[in-house]
Design a protein around this nucleic acid. Structure first.
Lengths: 331, 331
DNA sequence: TTATAAAATGTAATCGTTTTCATTTGTGTT
DNA sequence: AACACAAATGAAAACGATTACATTTTATAA
């Protein structure tokens, strides 16, 4: 039922070409004509059919936001950031999550060539080979969200996991802790390995020998965090601080400490990473690394929209979102 | 660069019409022709241009998922459910969140008539007048996600907040608690008011007088929950159990109890609503109401996709997603 | 075999916009 | 006033699919 450009043209007594140009602010159309067209557009409540426009132009004002999965606040913050920037620029975020039934690569291929999206934001903590190959032979702009990495074939936005982890461990050392253990994330997870590297780097820089026994591999989950913490606390040479690769595992440590009768931070200090929502309400308040996740989403969207708009391809950017150390009472 | 229907037609030596029909499983095309066309489609890696199709058909395989805001796990679970069902049916969810800068109504109007979405899933804990009026004069199918309500102008999916809250309070009464207080949510929030009604209904049914002083208005936040719990615990006629309208406020109660030296559940029992992720890790494990949020998303998407596909409008459905009581150690 | 209906396929119009190219209008110079 | 040239506008093609309608092929019955 919506009014079309033809009817608007008739009303404004110009050709459809002129209407199109006027509404797209083509400098070739006279200011007064432009004004008249816009006036009638308002009057008749004309909205261009975006589907027709996208179809004709061969692009889309829809952005594919490809996620490895969707759960927890980290993802909502990313989505929120992307959403905000998209709205500002007349773009829309289309969310697609991979899971056991569907790989990210599959999802992306699914989109490609269909014209349904004008570009992607891809969140890839694990960068599989097929994903890499898609990125390489991409025909659409892609912005990668992930821990800082050496990948050079597209724009990327992320936290400097290594530097942040290093800063946190250094902070703990400065507070006087001598025997700092680390509960890492999965070996396959890029973020996790970078954080572990940061932990090692901090110790080395401060001249503390790295003890392999002080690093145990977790999986970013509460239960595993609790279990590993138990192991640390019952070992003969127990650490005086534990740096967890994320806050969830830190929660697990709290539980372990509580049930084993250890006081935080007197008997054992705990530090996390992420500053998830509940961290601020934990007693004692968790020492952790705060990342402005929404900003990651915003930055990625900004970058992608610019990339979609520009015609010639300039060199790829790599944007690092700063992180802050939250010095809680758990250390 | 993608191959078009014309090239495919040429390759398969049929007309574009036949190709279109073959790929859309039109019974009018001979099985062998269909097979040949599909074979060449595979061979040439042909994907129909969805933009062109949507444009021509005047509909879209994109679903607008309109949220009041995006944060926390509740939303990710909804999104995940919607995403899963969409993927199955070749639809895509476009996420748009309202916030201070943009009302839901505005967002929806923005979509309408542009053809960019084929329908909406709208999550509306607060149902404003302009939102109602949009729903009434809708030209696209809409599925509402919200607490059970009396709204009749479109399909809706939600939890029966009132019945669930009533079940929980009844459960507490059966466990022997006599003085059960309630920390409610915001008065404007539909879910909150239904839960409060359930609380009142349970007391009345069990022949317990409702004491106005035992109901205090929270805002679904930890801090407010802690503050109100303090008030309850320091009142002269202190309750023996507190039913919170959500888990967040229950977390606040845990903090209040801990700092004031009350033991859960011996001195004060706590119950929540939502069963958010951390609830299972709280000590003692929180008694709460578990809702299969992902199922809400799935159901809404199912309903909407059916609605988009069908031509004639049948009567609206109202689907209630069941909830379960998690009997934790906090009561 | 032939007439006739049914099934399969083809031709071309169509959706609403953008954009190329042609045409008209306007401006400035002599 | 005449001309050249620039600016503004219009006419029509194009994008890639679907689909109404026309046409051809196949099947059925006499």
């Amino acid at each position: 039922m919506a009014i079309t450009i033809k009817e608007l043209a008739a009303a404004a007594k110009v050709s459809v070409a002129t209407v199109s140009r006027a509404l797209n602010d083509d400098p070739k159309v006279r200011p007064e004509t432009k004004k008249r067209v816009k006036h009638f557009a308002d009057l008749l409540d004309y909205n261009p059919n975006i589907l027709a426009r996208n179809f004709k132009k061969g692009t889309s004002n829809i952005i594919g936001l490809i996620l490895p999965d969707i759960y927890g606040e980290f993802f909502t913050e990313i989505i929120r950031g992307v959403d905000a920037v998209c709205y500002e620029h007349g773009y829309y975020p289309l969310v697609a999550s991979s899971h056991s039934e569907r790989s990210m690569a599959e999802t992306m291929i699914n989109f490609m060539g269909q014209g349904i999206v004008g570009g992607y934001i891809v969140m890839a903590p694990v960068l599989s080979d097929d994903l890499k190959s898609i990125i390489q032979k991409k025909n659409l702009p892609i912005v990668l969200i992930n821990g800082r990495m050496t990948y050079e074939d597209c724009d990327s936005v992320g936290v400097d996991n290594q530097a942040s982890a290093k800063a946190m461990v250094t902070h703990l050392i400065e507070k006087g802790y001598k025997r700092i253990a680390h509960i890492s994330g999965s070996k396959k997870n890029n973020d996790a390995t970078r954080r572990e590297k940061g932990y090692v780097a901090a110790l080395e820089e401060q001249g503390i020998a790295v003890d392999k026994k002080m690093i145990k591999s977790g999986d970013f989950d509460i239960v595993k965090g609790e279990q590993i913490c138990r192991e640390f606390l019952s070992s003969k040479n127990k650490p005086d601080a534990i740096f967890c690769a994320n806050d969830m595992m830190a929660i697990g440590c709290y539980k372990a400490a509580a049930t084993m009768g250890f006081k935080i931070p007197e008997d054992i200090a705990i530090a996390g990473f992420d500053d998830i929502f509940v961290s601020q309400f934990m007693t004692p308040r968790l020492t952790t690394v705060r990342v402005d996740t929404e900003l990651i989403g915003k930055t990625a969207a900004d970058l992608l929209i610019k990339r979609i708009a520009e015609s010639q391809i300039s060199s790829f950017s790599k944007i690092v979102i700063p992180s802050t150390i939250i010095d809680g009472e758990s250390s």
